[in-house]
């Protein structure tokens, strides 16, 4: 058992296909293995097809609602710039942190000129976030030879802001990933942690 960990609300957000649900699953399993109560809520189905995707993860001694209330999230992990902006008002006004993947994915309505993609996202986040960690996960993932592990890089960075030991994360990753992809995911996770430590 971990020392008492208070109720913690984490939002994992991004674009369908980025591995958001997997990243949220790893986090929720880590909290489970730490002996906490966990609830996780997300919406599947139509929203997957390149649309916005969000997963709420809540853990602590006792968790009621699976949905996070506006103004209560301690951590926002965003896999894409505009998706970070979509959830800023869910952050706690103080003592919050944002992990931002250095990636822009322009959606069809903006491409077609029906909407505009937001400018100066980092600037806005800096105003709101107690701590902002920008991670160039796609570059790291490409360097590791598998663009699909970008989500694990982001997760690695986010893990440094959460109250769980590194070996617990590694154990859950080992449980969750197939052997073929395990090694590269463990590397991606370690790289994410390293990036977080060097940027702080």
């Amino acid at each position: 058992m971990m020392p008492s960990i208070p109720l913690t609300n984490v939002i994992v957000a991004g674009v369908g296909g980025q591995g958001i649900l997997t990243a949220a699953e790893v986090l929720a399993r880590v909290a489970l293995e730490a002996g906490l109560e966990v609830k996780k809520s997300e919406v599947k189905g139509l929203s997957q097809r390149g649309g916005s995707v969000v997963s709420f993860v809540r853990f602590g001694p006792r968790v009621y609602s699976p949905v996070i209330e506006k103004g209560t999230a301690q951590l926002l992990v965003a896999f894409e710039r505009a998706e970070a902006l979509r959830w800023v008002h869910f952050l706690k006004p103080e003592d919050n942190a944002v992990v931002l993947n250095d990636l822009t994915v322009v959606p069809l309505p903006a491409t077609l000129g029906l909407d505009t993609y937001p400018q100066d996202v980092e600037e806005t986040l800096r105003q709101v976030a107690g701590r902002l960690l920008v991670v160039n996960a796609p570059a790291v993932a490409n360097r590791l030879g598998n663009p699909l592990v970008a989500n694990t890089v982001v997760l690695g960075a986010a893990s440094t802001l959460l109250p769980f030991p590194e070996d617990l994360w590694q154990r859950v990753l080992t449980d969750l990933f197939r052997r073929k992809y395990l090694e590269v995911n463990l590397q991606a996770f370690a790289e994410g942690r390293r990036l977080a430590h060097t940027s702080s």
Partner: peptide
């Protein structure tokens, strides 16, 4: 409502083919 940061406009991102 609980105090929270002001909402910002993101961008419409509906699912697509």
């Amino acid at each position: 409502e609980l105090p929270h940061p002001e909402p910002r406009k993101a961008v419409s991102r509906p699912p697509a083919l």
